[in-house]
Design a protein around this nucleic acid. Structure first.
Lengths: 252, 252
DNA sequence: GGACACCAAACTGCATGCAATTGGAGCGCT
DNA sequence: AGCGCTCCAATTGCATGCAGTTTGGTGTCC
């Protein structure tokens, strides 16, 4: 069989799902920055649904790690720490290696054409907004995952890719998509040739370099949790246990 | 640093979370078998909450893949196909290899003691109900994941482990936990010694043999979706596209 | 000027109510 | 009996309402 026959993994067409998709996209395109407030009322009003639905949608996105939900507090777009970002990329590397391992040499010509078409689209978007480039690059990886036809794998790759996307907007310097596009092409080519070891290595390297390009260092100013920033200084406070800090406003 | 300092990943104490935990446990202990119906009303009544809350909880569990939600239909405990079960184990292997890779040689004595204590508990439960053994074995893996102190990794390992647990109840023959316990001990030992390559190999082998013990073959009778069973026959139907089957009762 | 107490607006947590959809029992027809 | 039809109880999809909590601003006192 050429990979596995295709089937859909899409969400149902609930109002909840619609809102989830909209918010997800807004988040990964950085229309909603990390930390942005998401009051249930406003969302409901904006999407023409009741607060119940908006709330449910927020719950789903929280389960995906895109939104942070604190009791009795306004939901906000997640603000992963630098370490969490690195962890996400590490997981992503393993998952996507698995994807290409399953796919190597098993793609139909139609599927390869689809992948190439997608990369062409990425290429075409190079002049446009950065956010679109990032989204397309992410969707390339999700497209790959979908071709495994393993719903679980699709879900995890999608989630973790979105999370990585989110961290890029936090920690990344202005994006350079050029090499990423070339790397995508190289991956397609190796997949077509069926060189399992090589494509796994390519994917590993690709994601690692994306991570390294982005997560250059625990950039001290942006996106770090106040508690983390203060941690080294807390030692100097006399008679203060560092382990359990008192309640402090997070990211005032 | 000895692994990373421990912090909690628990869910908040919402009513929703309470119900989620209860259902999750009921599912992995097979008190609720795959396919079992979960009407919102009944759940709400049982847990002393409104339908709204029960519904929200079901949404969360659906996001984790433990529950299947179909529009306008009663929610049911998920019934993964054999292929999905195999996919889940494949993903789990990669994730848990990552766990032990991060942990090798980095555990404190206290953590090793905790792991040993857990395995002792598994040992002590050998006489008891099968469901408890399975749950404890699963929790061992989650405990490991928690020691990485990577919330994302904890979440994914937990989810996929629960899913695997679920599939065991579908496809597994009467469980033999003996060797699993020994394998757990071997993993702890290798982790303590810090032999990264070996512990990854051990974990790989451990999970692979759990999967093979359980998923012996696509058992034709139980747990298979009617559509899957019929798929080979559909080819013979004249002029019928196999891709899109008409609506058919699933698992009548 | 700065710290503190207090209050109103904003927001969440949850239950309830109503319309729409489903599935299955009952019933008649062949 | 087997098949199809109708109709109703069961159940979901969703909005609204009320109570409790947080937030941010104001006034007061030192």
């Amino acid at each position: 069989m050429a990979a596995r026959p295709t089937s859909k993994t899409s969400e149902s067409s609930d109002k909840v799902s619609v809102i989830c998709r909209a918010l997800r996209r807004a988040i990964i395109e950085q229309a909603l920055e990390p930390g942005a407030k998401l009051p249930e009322d406003s969302l409901g009003e904006r999407f023409g649904v009741s607060r119940t639905i908006a709330r449910h949608a927020l719950g789903q996105l929280a389960a995906e790690g895109l939104v942070e939900l604190r009791r009795n507090r306004i939901a906000v777009v997640a603000t992963p720490s630098w370490q969490e970002a690195r962890d996400a990329f590490d997981i992503r590397i393993e998952l996507e290696r698995l994807v290409v391992r399953q796919l190597a040499g098993k793609l139909t010509k139609a599927q390869i054409a689809e992948l190439n078409a997608h990369v062409d689209a990425e290429d075409g978007a190079r002049g446009g907004a950065d956010a679109v480039s990032i989204r397309l690059a992410t969707e390339f990886h999700i497209l790959l995952a979908q071709m495994t036809n393993s719903p679980i794998l699709v879900r995890y790759v999608s989630e973790v890719a979105y999370r990585c996307c989110l961290t890029l907007s936090l920690y990344s310097r202005p994006h350079s998509t050029e090499c990423a596009i070339n790397e995508h092409r190289a991956i397609i080519s190796a997949l077509a040739k069926g060189d399992e070891a090589k494509v796994m290595e390519l994917m590993h390297h690709h994601l690692d370099s994306v991570a390294n390009r982005a997560l250059v260092a625990p950039t001290p100013q942006r996106g770090r949790d106040l508690l983390d920033i203060l941690a080294p200084y807390a030692d100097e406070v006399a008679g203060n246990r560092v382990v359990k800090l008192p309640k402090v406003a997070r990211r005032g």
